[in-house]
Nucleic acid binder design. Structure first.
Lengths: 208, 208
DNA sequence: TAGATTGTTAATCGATTAACAATC
DNA sequence: TAGATTGTTAATCGATTAACAATC
């Protein structure tokens, strides 16, 4: 099992979404050509991406849809459940908690931490909110591997260090700050500024 | 003014953030080497990226910080204000509205639209909420160029078509759905699934 | 001056696309 | 069988990195 390049990995969720939609419609076989057309990719690209799962397609028919879904989910590690905590119960945190789609990724948020005393003991989207003081202990006890970080930029670095010290392995960082941590922790940043920069640039080019 | 490649464009906001932090500290000159070190990039990459702004640096000194900030902002079009509306006043929409950092991009959200009658007439984060029925008219009247789309996935396509028909030019799409629109409209998707896929994959690789 | 840093030209690397034989 | 689609090998493309002379 050689590792799949990141550009392909990033496309996998798009394939997955389409495939599940096909299956809902009762389709049993799907070709790279069809997927490519629907998603606006070149068919060769999709063919290559699907080949990376290790699955073999049938000339003329394409791929059997259920094994394909399974193979992609396995490549992503989405067949196993990933437990996570969410740190920072503001609007963004609530929005993410409320988004039921995460279940599709195998992502399960079991606890929320926040520094605001008014929120402690309440539930946000059905998930209980604990004080920051309990963070280290909770991670140590549960060995939970992942944290979703939705605190303000100012406290992001400090909170991230706390997470690292407690033994977290991966951080999905929504705070607009570049975290400096040891490379024991995998940090994945959702960078709205970069996304907006791309939009700005494409709009500008479009105008000319 | 030749166009700047997207990978560089996506890094520009990171440079900008660092540069502004330096300036707050009173620094007047900054070298590509210094920026590279702080951000974890190779110095050659940063040097190339900065050269794309058209600005010239001084050997031994680097770049004068204020012109550099200005040049990057201009390359991104962030020196001019971009007016936008936000469609979908849920948790995510509120979170984005509440995020004051958008002002740094020149992004100004002047109105919010939502289909929920209970929200009409109220304000979210100080911005007035209008009914969806007024959307087309508002865009037609104000010629506002951009929309931030934070509606549920199910209504994303329909709402996007409404935006296109009304004459919107760019959509920043936070809904987990691939929009099918004419290429008159620039769509920039914030894809949480792709981001999480990358995190999953990197964590998996890290384990071995 | 000496040395750090620039700008530029060439080399490398990886991803995407093209071409085509194999096959259901 | 005929034709669509696969898997694979080679070509292209673009971004990143390396090398190095120019210069403040």
């Amino acid at each position: 099992m050689k590792s799949i390049p990141l550009p392909a990995i990033r496309r996998y969720p798009l394939y997955l979404r389409r495939l599940k939609a096909y299956r809902m419609g009762g389709t049993l076989w799907v070709s790279a050509t069809m997927l490519a057309e629907d998603l606006g990719f070149s068919s060769i690209l999709v063919r290559k991406d699907l080949a990376l799962t290790g699955l073999e397609g049938r000339p003329k028919y394409g791929f059997s849809i259920d094994p394909l879904i399974g193979a992609i989910e396995e490549s992503l590690g989405w067949n196993n459940r990933t437990d996570a905590i969410l740190v920072g119960a503001g609007n963004l945190g609530s929005a993410l908690l409320g988004y039921s789609g995460f279940a599709q990724y195998g992502l399960e948020i079991s606890a929320v931490f926040d520094s605001d005393p008014a929120k402690i003991g309440t539930k946000v989207q059905g998930v209980p909110v604990f004080p920051m003081e309990k963070l280290t202990d909770f991670i140590g006890r549960t060995h939970i591997p992942m944290a979703v970080l939705t605190v303000p930029a100012e406290s992001a670095q400090r909170t991230a260090e706390q997470l690292e010290d407690a033994g977290i392995r991966g951080i999905w960082n929504f705070a607009p700050a570049k975290l400096k941590l040891s490379d024991k922790v995998v940090v994945q940043r959702v960078d709205l500024a970069s996304s907006f920069a791309e939009l700005s640039s494409r709009l500008k080019k479009d105008q000319t």
